[in-house]
């Protein structure tokens, strides 16, 4: 038995030191700073929780929190629904084309997110490509479609950006499923659909989980798309951006950041629990 009362630090932990220092300097400290700023009074004297009270009671802010979560959730669900079949096809049926499909999936990521978002504007603006085509060239419509400032387009733009992450997460897990498990299920009397729901889907739940966390978190924190496409949504990231740049109310911005962080952590926790249960049972 060791007599030392100090826990000894294994030497290999020293290898993590650079990463720890980096995170401390650029992640933990800013977070602490941010947290402090949210509770220091505007005149710099004393501590107040008034901003939190305001944020969590004011209807405007509550709506914003709800919108943030709803938007991320919608984007995640749609990514699963679109991504799963693509991943399934990629792993099971693409054969020698799978390399090409993966390239096509990743290729859009090579373009900046701003470019891709502007793409939607070019396509759907009042005098954009689609409306010009429909109204002037083909004469199918009398008035241009109003797509640009709708929540629907925001969701579409998010899905567009994030669906590759979902596909790749699911495909990685699907790839590892032993086909003989599905064959066993079939011989035991399960048709294709039942085999899918009894075997394939439960075994790929981890991939859905990973992809969902990835997509949800990114959607939860991004605002560029919202700034550019609007859609009448006032999500927390957008408000934070405005507080910093327009209102210059740093205290309120910090408060919202902290709330957004907590919301994200709670969602992460819930998703992890969901995945754990699905993966084990």
């Amino acid at each position: 038995m060791k007599t030392s009362t100090f826990p000894t630090i294994p030497r290999r932990l020293l290898l993590t030191l650079p990463a720890v220092l980096f995170l401390l300097a650029f992640f933990i400290l800013p977070l602490v700073d941010n947290g402090l700023r949210s509770i220091v009074q505007a005149d710099g004297n004393g501590i107040t929780f008034a901003r939190y009270v305001q944020l969590l009671t004011d209807q405007f802010y509550l709506t914003s929190i709800a919108q943030t979560i709803a938007l991320s959730a919608a984007v995640t669900v749609i990514c699963v629904l679109i991504g799963y079949p693509v991943a399934y096809y990629l792993v099971r049926h693409a054969g020698r084309w799978s390399g090409l499909i993966i390239f096509l999936l990743i290729a859009p990521l090579l373009t900046s997110i701003i470019m891709r978002t502007y793409g939607w504007q070019v396509l759907f603006a009042r005098r954009g490509f689609i409306n010009t085509l429909l109204v002037q060239d083909l004469g199918l419509l009398d008035t241009p479609l109003r797509v640009l400032d709708t929540p629907g387009l925001v969701v579409a733009a998010f899905v567009h950006v994030l669906v590759p992450f979902m596909v790749l997460s699911i495909a990685a897990v699907l790839q590892g499923i032993d086909r003989r498990l599905e064959e066993s299920a079939q011989l035991l009397g399960a048709g294709r659909l039942r085999t899918f729901f009894e075997v394939t889907l439960p075994l790929s739940i981890d991939g859905i989980g990973t992809g969902s966390i990835l997509v949800f978190m990114v959607a939860n924190g991004s605002f560029v798309t919202l700034v550019l496409l609007g859609g009448g949504l006032k999500t927390l990231p957008l408000l934070i951006f405005q507080q910093f740049n327009t209102t210059r109310d740093f205290g309120m911005a910090s408060t919202m950041s902290t709330v957004l962080l907590v919301v994200a952590l709670v969602c992460l926790f819930l998703q992890l629990r969901l995945v754990r249960r699905g993966g084990e049972a």
Partner: peptide, 20 residues
């Protein structure tokens, strides 16, 4: 007939038990 309507039993080399 498709496999699920053949009423056969099969044991695979790696057993293929459903891990979940």
């Amino acid at each position: 007939l498709p496999p699920h309507r053949r009423a056969l039993g099969m044991v695979f080399q790696n057993y293929s038990l459903f891990p979940h």
